[in-house]
C-alpha cells in the first residue's frame, strides 16, 4: 500500500494528527495527509468536531467557578485558620 493510501484509510493515525494539531504543530506533509483523510472520512470529521468541543468544555470546566462548587466545611476551615495563627505566633 502506498503511503497515501495508508493514511487515507488509517483513522488511528488521522485522529492522532487531529489531537496533535489542536495543541501543537504538525508537519506540512502531515497536514496534507490529514486533509486528504478527512475529505474521505466522515467518521473522523465527527471525531474532530467532537474533540474540539470536548477541549473547550474541559477548559471551561476547569476555569469557571460555578455556584454549588465543592466547598470546605466550616469546622475544617476554623481549625485551619487556628493552625495558621499558631504558626504566625511562633515568630
Amino acid at each position: 500500500m502506498s503511503q497515501l493510501k495508508k493514511i487515507q484509510y488509517n483513522c488511528k493515525k488521522a485522529t492522532f494528527l487531529i489531537e496533535k494539531k489542536m495543541l501543537s504543530r504538525i508537519t506540512f506533509r502531515e497536514h496534507i495527509e490529514l486533509r486528504i483523510h478527512l475529505m474521505g472520512c466522515s467518521v473522523c470529521r465527527v471525531y474532530g468536531k467532537q474533540s474540539r468541543i470536548i477541549n473547550d468544555m474541559v477548559r471551561q470546566l476547569f476555569k469557571s467557578s460555578m455556584p454549588g462548587e465543592a466547598k470546605l466545611d466550616e469546622s475544617f476551615k476554623k481549625e485551619l485558620q487556628e493552625r495558621i495563627e499558631i504558626e504566625l505566633n511562633k515568630n
Binding site: 483513522c11 467518521v43 467532537q50 468541543i53 473547550d56 468544555m57 471551561q60 469557571s64 460555578m66
Partner: peptide
C-alpha cells in the same frame, strides 16, 4: 487502522448545542 463500526464516533448531541457550563 480504520474505526471499527461498533466504536466509530457518532453525533451524540454535543455537536450542535452549546453545552458550555
Amino acid at each position: 487502522g480504520h474505526w471499527r463500526s461498533a466504536y466509530a464516533p457518532q453525533a451524540f448531541g454535543i455537536e450542535d448545542v452549546d453545552h458550555l457550563g
